[in-house]
Every structure is written in structure tokens, then in C-alpha cells.
Computed example of a mutant assay.
Amino acid sequence: MIQEYEPEATRRAASDTESSRASRGWWDRNADEYQNDHGAFLGDDRFVWGPEGLDEAEAGLLGPATELKGRRVLEIGAGAAQCSRWLAAQGAHPVALDLSHRQLQHALRIGTGAEPTGPDGSTGPDGSTGRGPAPGVSGRVELVEADAGALPFRDASFDLACSAYGAIPFVADPVWVLREVRRVLRPGGRWVFSVTHPIRWAFPDEPGPEGLSVGASYFDRTPYVEQDETGRAVYVEHHRTLGDRVRDVAAAGFRLVDLVEPEWPEWNSQEWGGWSPLRGNLIPGTAIFVCVAD
């Protein structure tokens, strides 16, 4: 009987290349389990900013829903494109981008009217490299398989951009990704992204009482890495302090107009990793940055 190796959790440096490779592999391997565990909470066409359940339909961080019609919107780290599907229902023209082929297959399973595209396809109207809608169906959501650090779109080709826990926590150089987003946004375009709240890095990733005591330095930026028996990273997540995130936003040419820290709602009884009603009522779990491309 072959015993499956359990990845070793550690804190060590991880480059852009190693982080990207680890993310692609991890999400391809774990997409099925992720969608099975969290698909009901995320819904098929709901825009949720994080485990607290803050819904874009109520929050309006991208702007009033009534003003989304006709807007070109880029979703980064789209997963199964639930957020993009909600945007399409408001009349927007979303492009859902993800590094993971398997995640985009789940987007097709749920239904988008489009096929995932890669670097060998034809050029779309926004400059994306890939095929558009599948023949005979209405393409409400375009899917693109690509790295957030090398967006395959023309300059100033989107009105809005968003990311709910996609890409930003998993890249070694977030400023590079933010500058790519800035490049493809039109002047005045809004960019909204959510990440794990930086304070959570000081606490164990446990939803119960054991997760309420500080266990690490908030100021330790060393990445969290899970590696196999050869030392190859299979999962990487990068920590930035709140101040780091604000400086990253400014360095990329954005103006920060709001920082939202969702409170845990009474209706939400679920546990998701380290998130739970117990912890959510005491410390923030998510930070949402609302930015404008000046």
C-alpha cells in the first residue's frame, strides 16, 4: 500500500515563478473539492466578497448595480465565474480570468455560454487571446485562462476590475499584478479586490477558541508554503501588512477610496478554514480595497 505524502507546512521565501506554478497545480488538484465544499455558499451567480458573505448586490463596491449595464468588467482569479455570472445578469460584459484550467471547467459546468481560452486562440474585441462564445450560444461570460501577472488584454480595455480572493494573496510581487490591472483599466476605472485580512496572519488558522490567541508576529512577511518531500512548493500564500497593501495600491497608480472590513453577520453560521462566527465577531477576516485608476 502506497502512503500518500502529506505536504510539509513551513515559512520560507518563494519566488514569483514558484508561487505561480504552485497555485496553478494546487487549484487544478483541489478545484473539485473546493467547489463541492463551498459551491452552495457561493451560489452559481452570486457575487460574494469573502467567507463573511458580504454580497456585492448589497455592498455596491463596484458602483450601483443599475450602472453596470454595458460595462466591460475583468474578474481576476474568477474560479468558477460565479461573480462574473452575477455581473452578466446586471447587463455587464464580464471576462472571467483564472490560472487554473480545472476551475474554468467548473465555470463551464455551471454554464457561461463561453469556452475557456488560452494563449493560442484568436484575438477578441478587448484584445484577449482566445476564442469567444461557443457556436450557437449567447456568450454572457468570456473565460480566459492566464496568469494575473501577464494579462492578455490591450491597454485601457476595461471599465472595471474585481477580484474576490483571487490571485493577489498568492503572488510574490502584488505590485506587478496591480500595475497590470491598472494598465488594462480605462482612466477613472474602479478596481476592487478582497484578500485575507492581514491581522489574521498573527492568529492560528483555527475557527475555535484555539484560534483566538496570537501565535505569530504580524510583521513577519515570510510566505506560508506547503512543500512536497522534495522541497517543491505545492501551495504558497504571501503575507502583507495592511500598510503594505495600501502602499502597493499607491505604487501601482491607484487611489484608495475605501477599505472595507466586513463584520460577521448573524445569519452566517458556517465555518470555513479559520473563519467562523466565533472569530468573526472578534477579529476581521477579510479586507476589501476599493481603488480608482487616476
Rank of each mutant, 00 (worst) to 15 (best):
Q3R: 13
E4D: 15
E6I: 14
A9K: 14
A13R: 14
A14C: 13
D16R: 09
T17D: 12
S19I: 01
R21V: 12
S23H: 11
W27G: 00
D37F: 08
G39A: 05
F41P: 07
L42C: 11
G43H: 08
D44K: 11
D45P: 08
V48W: 09
L68R: 01
K69R: 15
V73T: 01
V73I: 13
L74N: 00
E75R: 01
S84T: 00
L87H: 02
A89D: 14
G113M: 05
E115T: 12
G118N: 11
G130C: 01
R131E: 15
A134M: 13
G136H: 00
G136W: 00
R140E: 12
A146H: 09
A156T: 12
F158V: 07
F158Y: 09
A161L: 06
S163G: 12
F170D: 05
F170N: 12
V171K: 03
L178F: 14
R179D: 06
V192R: 07
V195A: 03
P198D: 03
I199S: 11
I199E: 08
P204I: 03
G208Q: 11
V214L: 10
G215E: 09
P223C: 05
Y224H: 07
D228M: 08
R245D: 12
V246H: 14
R247A: 12
G253W: 02
R255H: 10
L259P: 14
E261A: 11
E263Q: 09
N268R: 04
W275P: 01
W275K: 01
P284H: 06
